[in-house]
Structure formats: C-alpha cells, structure tokens
Write a protein that binds this DNA or RNA. Structure first.
Lengths: 351, 351
DNA sequence: TCGATCGTTTTGATCGATCAAATTATTCGG
DNA sequence: CCGAATAATTTGATCGATCAAAACGATCGA
C-alpha cells in the first residue's frame, strides 16, 4: 500500500510550508483566502489525512473519550447503559471525538485501565456510568486530576463539589409523577417494588413513591417490597403483594426488569389489568406494552459532553476547582404511558 | 500535573540507554537478566508508562480495533450486537488491544469513518457486524486492503475468498435442531415465522426449518409467515397462524422479538402451553422463559480476533490472499430449552 | 596473542505533526 | 513615500517512542 501523504507532501504540492498546511487545518482563519484554497486543493487531490498519532503526540490531546462496559448483568436493565453508549458514540462523532471502550471486572480494575489509557495519552477524559454510595473511583479521579464526568450523582458525598462533574436524572420526580398519574386514574393502594438500601438511585426512586403515594406509614411498610433486580425477583415480590389481604391496585417498580416480573405475576393471578409502571423505558417495556419512566438519554449525553468539552469543541476543559460554571446537571424524566396504565380507563378499575 | 516519565528518564535512572529500556518492554529476552531487572525496577519506581501515541507514530500500529454501533433498531434483537461488543471489549483487553466505537448512519457513512480512522492510523483493523446481500462494504474493504473480519458470511458472494475473513454461526443447523427437538417431543405441525427474502441470515434459518419440519410443500406455505422483525409483527403473524383451520402445534421464529410476539399471541388465545422457540437467546427470552437458539458469542469473538491477529498477539496479520490458512469459521449454535418447549412434557400435548 | 564471532548495549535517524519564534509581506497613518 | 504596526508565512525544535546500524565487550579457536 502506498505511503500516505504527509503535511510535507501537501506543502510541496501547494508550494507553501508545512506549517501553513497545518494552519489551514487547525486555524484556517489566519491563512489568506488565496493560499487556503490552494492548499485545500492540494489536500483534496492528494487525499491527505492528518496522522492522528503524530498530532496526539505533539498536542498531548487525543480527542478520545473512554468508557467502561460492565460485564453485562441482567441484560434488560443493562440495556440503558448500552443505549447510553450508542448515544455517546453518535454525539461524540458529531464533535469529532472518538470513543474507546474497555471492560473491567471491578472498580480497582477499572481504575487501572483508566490509568493506563490516560498515562499512555490514549484517552483525554472518561465517562463513568452508574455511581455507588461512596464510590471510590470518584475520589481517585478527582485526586489524580483525571478529567471525567459521571452519569450518576455522588451519592453520600456533597453533590456540589465542582471538581466532580456529573449528570443525572431525577428518578424521584419520575416516580412521583408516575404515582400521581396512577392516583389520578383512580388507584388508591399503589405498591412499590424496589432495591435494597443503600442504593443511591434506588432510594431516590423510592422516595418519589413515598412522597406521592399518600399511604400511612404502616401501609407503606406493607406495600413496599424490597429485592434484588431481576425479572424473577420482581415476580416473587409481586406474588407476595398480590396475596395480601388488602392487595395493591397498582404497582410501581424501580426497573423494567422488576416490572416485567410483576406483570407476569399479575397475569398469572388473573389480574391482567393491574396497572404497572417500570423504569427506564427499555425496548422490552415497549414490546410488552408496559408503562415506564423514560430517561432522556440524548440530553444526558449532550450535557455530559458539554460539561467536559464546553459548548462545542474537542478540547477537554481543565478540571474545574471553583463554582464559576455549573458542573452538574439534573434532568427530568418523563412517563411513557402504555397499555398497562390505560387499563383503568378501559372499564376495568383495578380495585 | 507532573510530566510523565519517558524512556529517557527511566534510562537515566537505570544507567542504561533509551533503547535498552525499549527492549526491556518489547523484546525482554534479548536483555541480560541483570540489566533487565535494574530497568524494571526503575520503571516501577518512576511509574513509567509508554506513551501510546509515540509508539503508534513510530511503529505505524495502533493495536486498536474499530467497530460500528448501529443506531439501535428494535432493541431486543439488537441486544445480540451489544453483547458482541461487550465480549469484544473483554477479549480485546486480554490481548492488550483497544476497541474504538463509532456510529454511522449508513454504509457509505460507515466507510468514510473507516477511512478516516484508518488513514489517521487510529485503528488497525475493523470488525463488521451484520452482513447483507452483496454488501458493498466488503468489496470496498478488500479493494482498499483494509484489514477486517466480519461477523456474518458474504451472502451472495463466494464464501471462500481468502481476502475476506469472516466468522458466522450456522443458523440453519440451529433452527434444524430446534425443529427436530420439537418433533421429538411430539409436535407435528411446526410453523415458521421469519423475515422476508432475500435476507442472508433469515433465508438460512428458514432453510433449517424447511429441512427438518417434514411438511408437504403446501403445508409449508401455509405454516410459514413472513414479516419484518419486531414484537408486534410476530404477534400479528402468530395470530394469523393460530386462526388457521389446522393451526400449528409449535412455532419456531427467526428472532426472539418475533417469538415474544408469538408467545403473547398464544397466551391471548389461551394457548399458554404452545411451544415456541426464538433465536438469539436474548435476556428477554431468559426472562420470560422462552426457548431460544443461542449463538456462542464468546467463540465468535475469539475466532474473529484469531483470524485478525493470530493465535496470540496484537499485530494484525496481513490481508491474506491465498488459502494457506483458514480465513473463516462457521460455528454451531445450541438450543437453550426453557419452559416454552417443556410444556409438551408437562402433560399438555400441544397437538 | 590476535582476529573472528557472538551477544549485549548504545548511537543517530525517523515517524508526522504542532509549537514558538523568526522572517517576510502587507497595510496604513503621517 | 517612509517607517511602524500588523498580517501572513516560514524555520528550527520538539513530542516520545522504535528502527537500523554501529560500537562494545566477552568468548574462543588458531
């Protein structure tokens, strides 16, 4: 295969110096029109493309974002992260950024990958997805001045540390709206199926239910079911709830996996019309007609990139250390209603 | 942030020359034990990491694989590709390879990305997923000597062109086995829900059904239903099949999406025990207890990497042009049986 | 003891771009 | 029409590694 043309080749062809070619590429506004056109023509004719490695070596920027792909767990809820990665690839592309993925077994492993990718100047900045209580990664990244943004709040730590840029979705508001909507449609005993505490995301979503369900404390205790994520677990919980002396007339779940399980339990119990709401609006929810709280992933990704790179651009903004510019963003989800909540209207009051 | 140490820093600390440090890293066997240990100690103490960009510039290798993430379609079947990408990240990691993702709107767009990434020496080799009939990408890649491997056969082109390395799963065998299994359990009229022709993958899977279903041509026509992929489409097809004067006593589908739709149709028709088999063994299938043909993605990824990089190593093997070494691999899927095919045993013969 | 041979280490050049500073061309007020 | 200020372009150095070839040192047979 023929050698790729370099700046020098272009320079020779256009009768200018290397630097002028470089300028046409990077700061075209300082090159005279006449010259710029001539150079551009040479570039096109030769099919020149800048060598990314050389540029990176010199500029110490890679215009590349790193993101970890977890070993998939459930596969249904995990789909959110996949969707996130897709969106990230799309929007990064639009900004002329590259996205590099890596997999890691645990947090320590992830950090060692991050270190390797960064020290090798392979990657400029990282996106973390899914933050935990007292997530050790965040402290490490902040301490080591690694530019990053997380999709997920710093649970258990002050949320306004400017050195930690984050984007998140207000799950509490999302669940609250869902509950209110169900109430509006006639539901009185709305149950909750969620994850064990402490779970940042899970506790927050549950809080939305507590806030809006209008149940007494003892009823809350009776109608809240805590379990690991997963369809089977959701089903078991729902079975238990439906067997209560005063069963719920609607169920809100912390995830679509749980909700799908609940849906199956309801159908098995002959309660095919029990309104159920999930969370994440995964493709499965759409497929089976399950209402679900939808996270605005497009906006999440856009916000994440903006926090890292600014309005438009491919250069990472330095790690902020003061609150001059906002360093986090909380977005509002929205309920997507499908058959599972419309049933109340179809002449089949669930209670 | 302090400057990262370079080979020179290490060399100075270990009282050797840069090249010796480089040798310790790349060809340790030619360095004397004594020296190697001393250098290694210096590397550890300084926390030295080779700069990937510099290395790439010099060696003209990036040790990076590129892969396109489609804008997601269905989301259920698309999950296979996501799983593939995960596995790829994991196994690439084990070989010290990096994976870069990009998104593209269409085939042309994908090619222009590939060109950019390759000409910039960002990426050494590409993985294509999902090949179509007369896929234009393949001809282009072969013509331009871009190293690549595809997950998917060259439908409509000779499959043994050594310049096209590919891995695929024998969908025909997978479906055949599923059909035989259903027959073994007593099913006589096994229906097929699949995609419109020509579709490489789809036609192949259907061929498996034709081969094993043991139906007359006219019965085949009656019991085969063709539709786009998607849960709703699957459901519509199944509704039609179940309304036949002689309805099927089992259904095999070209995808889990279709199968999920079929499952819903069966349940709605009070045929909760109708055996249904999907394809791809997605998380959803597992969640709802749907039997499905599972593609051995671990093996697929391993084979893809092996075709590109050899037994072990991070250097792309040159584009082969003769058949000295095998350049493709066809793997066998396996049926994962769940409730939906066991029902025949549970005392509810479907026929 | 000398030169040939082998294994080990070092030196100089290079990959392809950008940075910083120097140089040349142009504009403009007086 | 001149010199200062500004715009446009060029030159030399550099990023951090590896390649290719040269230099070095030890071993060994003649």
């Amino acid at each position: 295969m023929a050698r790729m043309p370099t700046v020098d080749d272009v320079a020779r062809a256009a009768q200018v110096s290397r630097q002028t070619v470089s300028n046409v590429l990077n700061t075209p506004e300082i090159v005279r029109d006449n010259t710029r056109e001539r150079v551009q023509r040479a570039i096109d004719e030769l099919g020149y493309r800048p060598n990314a490695s050389a540029r990176r070596l010199r500029t110490r920027r890679s215009a590349t974002i790193g993101i970890r792909l977890d070993p998939l767990r459930d596969g249904i809820s995990g789909a959110v992260l996949d969707r996130f990665v897709h969106k990230l690839a799309e929007q990064a592309d639009a900004r002329d950024l590259r996205v590099m993925i890596f997999s890691a077994a645990g947090n320590d492993d992830e950090l060692s990958h991050i270190r390797r990718l960064r020290d090798g100047s392979d990657v400029d900045a990282f996106v973390l997805i899914g933050t935990d209580h007292g997530d050790p990664r965040i402290a490490w990244l902040v301490d080591h001045h690694v530019p990053f943004v997380s999709f997920g709040r710093p649970w258990g730590a002050p949320a306004d540390d400017p050195r930690h840029r984050w984007v998140d979705v207000d799950g509490r508001a999302g669940v609250r709206d869902a509950v209110l909507r169900l109430a509006e449609r006639g539901a009185r005993r709305i149950a909750w199926i969620g994850w064990p505490s402490p779970s940042g995301t899970g506790d927050e979503r549950r809080a939305g239910w507590v806030e809006a369900c209008g149940l007494s404390e003892s009823d809350q205790d009776a109608l809240a079911c805590v379990t690991e994520d997963g369809v089977a677990h959701g089903r078991a919980c729902a079975d238990r709830l439906l067997a209560l002396p005063e069963p719920p007339d609607a169920i809100v779940c912390a995830s679509d996996s749980l909700a799908l399980g609940a849906l199956m339990a309801a159908q098995a119990a002959g309660l095919g019309d029990l309104p159920i709401v999930g969370f994440d609006n995964t493709p499965v929810a759409a497929a089976v007609g399950l209402s679900s709280v939808d996270q605005p992933l497009d906006d999440v990704v856009a916000a994440a990139l903006e926090l890292l790179f600014g309005e438009s651009g491919e250069t990472v903004r330095p790690n902020p250390d003061s609150n001059e510019e906002p360093t986090h963003r909380l977005l509002v989800p929205r309920l997507v209603e499908r058959r599972s909540t419309h049933l109340l209207l179809d002449g089949n009051p669930g209670a």
